[in-house]
Design a binder for these strands. Structure first.
Lengths: 196, 196
DNA sequence: AAATTGACTGTCAATACTGATAGTCAATTT
DNA sequence: AAATTGACTATCAGTATTGACAGTCAATTT
């Protein structure tokens, strides 16, 4: 009884605002005031919903990992029918709005905060491992005759090339940088083709 | 006349301490107190040597870019005699202490601060472009008959794979992650070989 | 309508951080 | 030895940030 709780929804909104602030100001630079302004709420409410600073950062970690995992799962499902390396690369590099670019930046920001918040390490590590695994599975399904180790290497390489591209976004680099990673990923994929 | 100035030397020491703090706490988390403790100095001295916060961050930017450029130049000179792609990859991935791992992390942290300190963008962009250029020149010299565009893509790819590896260091990932990037770089290099 | 529950606000205290200034001490020149 | 210059220290004021708590308002149940 009593007033119905919107805690779950509101908490997600606040975490989303937190994410935007981390992208702009970094983990330590994202103050309660910034987050509140971004979320359109008063400062004390942030604390009300997320707790003190440490709890906030850990909650952000969970949120980022959760969102990241959902994107990973979406990718897996999308390529389940036609698990082709080219489709994987297209999905990664030409996903129009499918993947939230903030996730990658936040992920890196949180990785760099591990020394202060060691609890972040495990979930961050595991979610990235899951991402790699999906890519590996797609490459393996795509090239059943190829060497397994080669497939793993190619999958890792494609993902890593994708990650770097995102990391440079705030630098507003020339488009060629992005294209190069994309074409390098394609070249990497080609190494798995049969050589007659 | 007067007491001899150690400003230049001390400034570099302070900037080095700043760099270490940025690796640990991020750009906004690296407080004057942290930096002073790291440098073994009193807090007001940091200001004395580097000026206010904005000047400090810009000075750090210059310092990181300068160090990065020196490493780039070292790489270029080291591979000038035998400009081979494999040597490039070895130099990048198996450089024992040659490359300061803090540079990469600081570089990324500064990239993420561009929105707050827009002056950082140009030097950061240019120094990375110089890094790419050295790699491209080595690949071109190594494969004079190969398609030029292909060489550029491969060079970009190798560098990007290297960068990702460094970015994950705070996550303490399994060694396989590093190996995968290394082998992916090798595979990418192989795509330039002549196909009979 | 009363009670209950939770979202939300206002406000204060404690602390952390930066900016700034006056002043001390050390090394060099004349 | 006096003067000069710069490294370094002590300390204060102003602001930003967090933490905490009391209290108001809204929505739902009984």
């Amino acid at each position: 009884m009593g007033r119905p709780s919107v805690q779950d929804q509101r908490k997600k909104e606040v975490l989303d605002a937190f994410m935007s602030c981390v992208v702009r100001y970094g983990v330590e630079g994202a103050t309660l005031e910034h987050i509140a302004a971004q979320a359109g709420l008063k400062r004390p409410l942030i604390r009300h919903h997320l707790g003190n600073r440490k709890a906030m950062v850990l909650a952000l970690g969970e949120h980022v990992v959760e969102t990241f995992s959902k994107q990973t799962e979406t990718l897996r499902v999308a390529l389940d029918e036609h698990p082709d390396v080219r489709n994987l690369i297209e999905a990664l590099f030409n996903s129009d709005g499918e993947m939230d670019p903030r996730i990658n930046i936040c992920y890196q920001a949180l990785v760099n905060s591990i020394e202060i918040y060691p609890e972040l390490r495990k979930p961050l590590l595991e979610s990235m491992e899951a991402f790699y695994k999906v890519a590996i599975d797609i490459v393996l399904a795509s090239h059943p005759k190829a060497d397994k180790q080669a497939c793993e290497i190619v999958a890792h390489g494609i993902i890593n090339l994708f990650i770097t591209t995102d990391a440079f976004v705030p630098l507003k680099p020339p488009k060629t940088w992005g294209y190069s990673s994309y074409f390098a990923a394609l070249k990497l994929a080609e190494t798995l083709e049969e050589k007659p």
